[in-house]
């Protein structure tokens, strides 16, 4: 019994610290906002130009002028501020954002990240991901340990076009939590019902004891 999406998001929530400004990516990372621990106050940044992102709206409160970076309708808080895209990335590149939590297609043992295109097949674009991984203090990836074909996503080196080199600090998968350290990935937590044999079998990256 590996972790499901919500359990992965809940585990990522434990990485949050009081007072942090945090950017959450599209997909599972968005769910992390449901698991901010009690007593921890974080301010969520949305790179399309908002600090202090609130929850999804009720049907009556939907506002076409108020969306997150995943283009979903959202709400504001009493601390919220809005700004231009240039100001938004000034915060990101300028090192003002403490943490980014984002998804990935592949991560390498040296912290290289690939999450924006599959040549000839899937062309989505990097959006703000290249700026985020280059600029924020700590980068955490949440992703399934293997792809739909069952192949590992934790590699010795990435095969897809990179989003950034040596940028990932920690990876949370359905099988456990991995820290990028000198020489490879260090297993720092194993999901319920998972053992090291399964992790070894499903990981190409060097595992450091």
């Amino acid at each position: 019994m590996a972790w499901n999406r919500n359990q992965m998001a809940e585990r990522a929530g434990q990485e949050l610290r009081d007072g942090m400004y945090v950017n959450l990516g599209i997909g599972i990372p968005t769910l992390v906002s449901n698991y901010i621990p009690d007593g921890v106050d974080v301010t969520l940044q949305s790179e399309n130009g908002m600090l202090g992102m609130g929850p999804f709206p009720t049907e009556e409160n939907i506002d076409a002028d108020l969306i997150n970076a995943g283009k979903q309708t959202i709400t504001e808080l009493n601390r919220t501020s809005y700004f231009s895209s240039a100001d938004s990335f000034a915060m990101i590149r300028g090192g003002k954002i403490a943490m980014a939590i984002l998804g990935a297609m592949e991560v390498a043992e040296n912290g290289d990240l690939a999450n924006w295109m599959i040549p000839g097949k899937l062309v989505k674009g990097m959006g703000g991901a290249m700026d985020l991984v280059a600029g924020v203090g700590r980068v955490i990836v949440i992703m399934d340990h293997t792809n739909k074909k069952g192949e590992t996503k934790l590699l010795k080196s990435c095969t897809l076009p990179l989003t950034g080199t040596g940028v990932v600090d920690e990876i949370i998968t359905n099988l456990g939590v991995f820290e990028v350290v000198e020489g490879g990935l260090k297993v720092i937590e194993i999901a319920d019902g998972v053992d090291m044999d399964e992790i070894r079998a499903k990981t190409e990256a060097t595992l450091v004891e």
Partner: peptide, 11 residues
């Protein structure tokens, strides 16, 4: 298509 990172495009 000239892919340009979002922050780079804004800047």
């Amino acid at each position: 298509l000239e892919f340009t990172p979002q922050g780079t495009l804004a800047e």
